[in-house]
């Protein structure tokens, strides 16, 4: 594989010298911000916490692999192969939310704005309200992904052959959106009009929720492992190809009958994407360790990190959009002030 080296060329602006490097040691699984501190969820056992001053503290969490993590900006919740669901607050203090009685792996987690947390172990999806009320729901096959709708208490549970939409507080039967194949990560568009899944095959699938019309988004060379909605949900940026594939969702038909934008092509696959919370830019991590900032409008690029060897495995912006943090599979990480 060719190394990416922008050299002296004027075509790309580099801000690599402004990145505060954080050699964390252990592989990074995902990155989240609580306030102005970045939380680097390790592949195993602990979460490393760092601010722009570059000082790293570490919080022990699971006895084993950390399989999933989600954050609402106020807390971070992780699930592990030790059967535990653990919340970490902005100070780095941990609380065990739940322990699976059979010590099953906690495969997925999702957070709702009202403090409700959802998680899954095998075929069982569980929700617990802020008051501690717990409900469970079984789907026909192992849960691939969980997501709360932006409105109401409605949980999307991705599994084999489709997605189940469950209203934990209502007696009504759950709704089932069918599409053959194994559905993994799932996400609602911020306007609540669309639901998309990343499939086991290298493809995305989507439904327009008003009429359940299907949207097939295929053509990826690799599985889509990361997706991120741009400001206002106008576009959905996805990994899986050697450029960022951005599907247009601004119109009422979503991407139906439209071509996606293909931005920031590189000689390596996109491994993570994270759209900026306020502006039409996104951070993009590649399998060779490169991190770019890319403007959605025209694809203009700024180099944040050069080829680093291991794939970038986590990227996050703080809520204000003033800080960007990244982490890689080899334990290298960095934080940047805009």
């Amino acid at each position: 594989m060719k190394e990416f080296d922008p050299g002296e060329g004027p075509s790309i602006v580099s801000i690599t010298d402004r990145v505060k490097l954080l050699p964390l040691g252990g592989a990074v699984g995902s990155v989240h911000f609580l306030g102005d501190r970045a939380f680097f969820v390790g592949a195993e056992e602990s979460v490393a916490i760092a601010g722009i001053d570059g000082e790293v503290t570490r919080t022990g969490t699971h006895f084993g692999a950390i399989l999933c993590a989600a954050s609402d900006g106020k807390r971070l919740v992780t699930g592990g192969d030790d059967g535990k669901l653990i919340a970490i607050d902005a100070k780095g203090e941990t609380t065990v939310i739940a322990t699976d009685a059979k010590r099953r792996w906690i495969d997925n987690v999702a957070l709702h704005g009202d403090g409700t947390v959802a998680w899954s172990a095998g075929k069982t999806a569980l929700v617990r309200s802020a008051k501690g009320e717990e409900k469970t729901f079984e789907v026909p096959s192992t849960v691939g992904g969980l997501a709360f709708a932006p409105k109401g208490l409605r949980l999307a549970i991705a599994h084999y052959n489709g997605v189940t939409l469950w209203f934990p507080n209502m007696a009504a039967n759950p709704e089932f959106l069918e599409w053959a194949g194994s559905h993994l990560a799932v996400s609602f568009s911020p306007d609540n009009k669309f639901l998309v899944t990343a499939m086991h095959e290298p493809a995305m699938h989507g439904w327009r929720l008003a009429d359940n019309r299907h949207m097939r988004m295929s053509g990826y060379p690799g599985r889509v492992r990361s997706m991120s909605w741009s400001v206002g949900g106008k576009g959905l940026a996805t990994s899986g190809a050697d450029s960022v594939i951005v599907w247009p969702f601004a119109s009422k038909d979503g991407p139906m009958g439209k071509e996606p934008a293909m931005l920031a092509p590189m000689p390596a696959r996109v491994s993570v994407v994270a759209c900026h919370p306020k502006n039409d830019i996104m951070a993009v991590g590649y399998s060779d360790g490169v991190v770019l900032m890319v403007r959605l409008e025209d694809g203009a690029e700024i180099l944040v990190r050069r080829t680093g060897g291991a794939p970038v495995s986590g990227l996050a912006w703080n809520a204000k959009g003033t800080l960007l943090a990244f982490g890689a599979e080899d334990g290298d990480a960095g934080i940047l002030e805009m």
């Binding site: 592949a43 195993e44 692999a65 495969d107």
Partner: peptide
């Protein structure tokens, strides 16, 4: 959990749970 791959080939089945477990194991 035996899944058919979405490629129209009926005998192209995989163990979906194994894909997930391998993914988790690789973290260790």
């Amino acid at each position: 959990e035996v899944f058919e791959m979405n490629n129209g080939c009926v005998c192209c089945t995989v163990r979906g749970d194994l894909v997930r477990i391998m993914d988790g194991l690789m973290k260790r």
